[in-house]
Nucleic acid binder design. Structure first.
Lengths: 234, 234
DNA sequence: TCTCCTTGTTGAACGTGTTCAAAATAGAAA
DNA sequence: TTTCTATTTTGAACACGTTCAACAAGGAGA
């Protein structure tokens, strides 16, 4: 529904149409030929506009990815929300979110590599930790907030509050693995999910016990500490 | 000493000189102006050669990074080896390796972002999981093998054999954090090291206890399973 | 010294992402 | 309708990474 960073205006009916046209064409070509093989000239031509027009709506070729990313999240949400509504167990809910994530992104497997590539650059607005992608990050974490709250877990306060963020990081790890996964049908990624979700779940259940908390308390303190944003050096 | 993937020959005294000249000039410029701001034309001109000559020795601009990476590892090794020789405790050894890693790379903080950016791309030869960078990966893991073996820990066999690899992943995590760290003097990264090393160390110590092994066994099995390389789909 | 093949070097040319001044087209106000 | 401004659209031009056919230098064997 909403784009991550509105790279450009669309103040007219006509404008919105053009913008949509360009994005749609770009994503088609990306899926078809891959990101690198698709030139801005090809996108413009296929969309029936001039090159410069594409740059009027999207600051750069990379910004097309950003738009794609937002769209992907919406699709993921649409797929997993109904499934989530009829599952209460924590590991089951977690597995649903992760599997639908991979399934939704699967048509863009090759393409997603570029996404992560640019996302890893601290200078890029696509970087998931950047202020620019605060909305995307918020949405991602919110989904896991929903996973946790819907599961009715009994958890210590500190764990409870950081868990959605930690699960979001966990998801990023899964996605990173998936991107590098060249196995048939990405079977290894699914195996990773199937086997790691129970481990994570058990780890979370342990959070209540004093012995585990000996560990968790400093670990969580560290996470909280490091999440606090800092102003860069002058 | 050794380069990661010999992108090009240097079969002559003269050739080696030229190669060295280009690499040195490139790294200087990268450090000075950043990677993106440094053009191949500028490198060639500053090195006193033609553009094409740079491409004779380095397959691409990115391959200059690869050469840099190998050089950085050698420097890191040179710095931390003597320190490692006079420290037996596991957490101390671990901390030495991580801190010297960051210190060695610090002059290239901005530049390293690009390294990780390209490294995140599965298609790139710089990707640390690619067959192409097997030597680099081997060297990185070997260093942690040395950290573990020199610490004289009593560990279960399965943990013992996977630990160097896991510590290497841990290091990658630290470096990833460092790259995104904009705090003054990267103070947060050092805090992360100071606080996470004891946690990791305690976690490792726990590996001997049966209760912990209830967890570790399936987790390690998963790691071992997923590390096994697979042929891509046909 | 001369020959011949490997190694090293050149720079113009290509395709790419991107910019920008100028032109065309809304859409509202008169 | 006509005018006027903000919005949209254009495509040539720019800078960059990269390629390649051609040329130069080096050095081993005669």
């Amino acid at each position: 529904m909403e784009e991550v960073t509105e790279a450009a205006p669309a103040k007219t009916r006509k404008g919105e149409q053009t913008r949509e046209q360009i994005l749609e064409t770009a994503l088609d070509l990306f899926r078809e030929k891959g990101y690198e093989q698709t030139t801005m000239r090809a996108i413009a031509q296929a969309a029936g506009v001039a090159v410069g027009n594409a740059y009027y709506y999207f600051r750069s070729k990379e910004h097309l990815i950003q738009a794609f990313y937002g769209r992907l999240h919406d699709e993921h949400l649409a797929v997993c929300a109904p499934l989530l509504a009829r599952q209460r167990g924590f590991p089951a809910r977690l597995k649903i979110v992760l599997k639908t994530k991979i399934e939704t992104a699967m048509p863009y497997h090759r393409f997603s590599a570029i996404l992560f590539k640019t996302a890893a650059d601290p200078a890029s607005p696509l970087n998931p930790f950047s202020p620019d992608s605060e909305p995307t990050r918020r949405q991602g974490i919110d989904l896991f907030e929903e996973v946790v709250s819907g599961a009715g877990l009994k958890l210590p306060k500190d764990v409870r509050s950081e868990l959605p963020y930690l699960l979001w990081l966990y998801e990023m790890g899964i996605v990173l693995f998936w991107i590098h996964d060249a196995s048939a049908g990405c079977a290894r990624t699914y195996r990773l999910i199937d086997k790691s979700v129970p481990l994570v779940s058990r780890l979370v259940s342990l959070a209540r016990f004093p012995i585990a908390r000996l560990f968790l308390k400093p670990a969580l303190a560290l996470v909280v500490d490091l999440r606090r944003p800092v102003e860069p050096e002058p």
